[in-house]
Design a protein around this nucleic acid. Structure first.
Length: 298
DNA sequence: AGCCAGGATCATC
DNA sequence: GATGATCATGGC
């Protein structure tokens, strides 16, 4: 019989759980968590077994619940850290809002998305794989490909009337069959990327700790881009979504270009110079502007 | 039906 | 260091 243990996180200034849920539940076929009735739930793996995480707002706190056979204090500390990381709770975004407020064109983002935090992908390996999957295909299709991959190679667990999955481990995907991956609608190129990256992670040659050892963003970008399949877009995406880097721009991003075209009188495809021009007013907060521009497409 | 998707690589100039 | 072809398939 499972235990259910709860803890809370105070709601920080300029944080809206509702906005977080709105981003998490954008209508795509997400397979790694559920959003329903104001509750996010997700399967997590621990060294001694699986657990279900549930997060919801209760008055002025975020309520965190972990359902697991045996919940330790360490588990709860880990889960709190995970949620803070996932929803970027430990950040004072007032400086970003100050920059937005005085911007001639984008100031309305403050009220449009008040309290919207940059929702991350805390697991670096998952973030990279997801970025690879999403390269050059529409998001609806990308989510379907991710689902098929997760259902084939991830861990599956039934809780109540729901089927939960975790993202596949690098060890597992490193040995995935190319033929199967082709059947899951991966291109040959992406199969190569996926397997190479999985081997690198399985061998311990890439990790958050390894990236953190580079103190500059440029160092981290370079390290990531040494890996086949990771270009400028993926590297920035990953640093933004998984490493808490605040000055990332997803150069070449189709959605970013669309949003920029909507608000600025740039030609059809804004080049990097044009993008830099727009982002230079948000030094240190480029990732957030990037995220808000994406959100403006919803 | 045809162009575009939250790109990257390799060849070629 | 700039372009162009290629990858692959679904969405709209």
């Amino acid at each position: 019989m499972d235990q259910i243990v709860s803890t809370t996180i105070p709601i920080p200034d300029k944080f809206s759980f509702k906005e977080t849920l709105a981003f998490l539940d954008r209508g795509f076929d997400e397979c790694l968590y559920f959003v329903s009735e104001g509750i996010v739930s997700k399967l997590l793996t621990f060294p001694d077994g699986d657990g279900i995480l549930r997060v919801f707002q209760k008055e002025n706190v975020l309520q965190i619940e972990l359902q697991k056979e045996q919940v330790s204090d360490g588990d709860m500390e880990g889960v709190k850290a995970l949620v803070s990381d996932w929803f970027d709770l430990n950040r004072n975004i007032t400086p970003f809002y100050n920059l937005l407020t005085k911007h001639p064109i984008l100031s309305h983002f403050v009220k449009d998305f008040y309290g919207s935090r940059l929702v991350g992908i805390p697991d670096l390996y998952e973030a990279i794989c997801w970025a690879i999957i999403g390269q050059q295909i529409n998001l609806a299709f990308a989510y379907k490909v991710k689902r098929s991959l997760v259902e084939e190679y991830g861990e599956r667990k039934v809780f109540g009337d729901r089927v939960y999955y975790t993202f596949p481990t690098p060890e597992r995907l490193a040995q995935a069959s190319r033929k199967k991956l082709r059947a899951l609608k991966f291109s040959r190129q992406k199969i190569d990327y996926l397997i190479i990256i999985s081997r690198i992670f399985a061998n311990g040659e890439m990790s958050k700790a390894i990236l953190r050892a580079f103190d500059s963003k440029k160092g981290k970008l370079t390290k990531l881009m040494e890996i086949k399949g990771i270009g400028i877009w993926t590297a920035n995406y990953v640093l933004m979504k998984s490493m808490g880097e605040m000055s990332c721009i997803t150069y070449g991003d189709a959605g970013l270009n669309k949003a920029v075209n909507r608000f600025f009188d740039t030609g059809s495809k804004p080049d990097n110079g044009k993008i830099d021009d727009i982002f230079k007013n948000f030094a240190g907060w480029e990732s957030y502007l990037n995220f808000y521009l994406w959100r403006s497409l919803e």
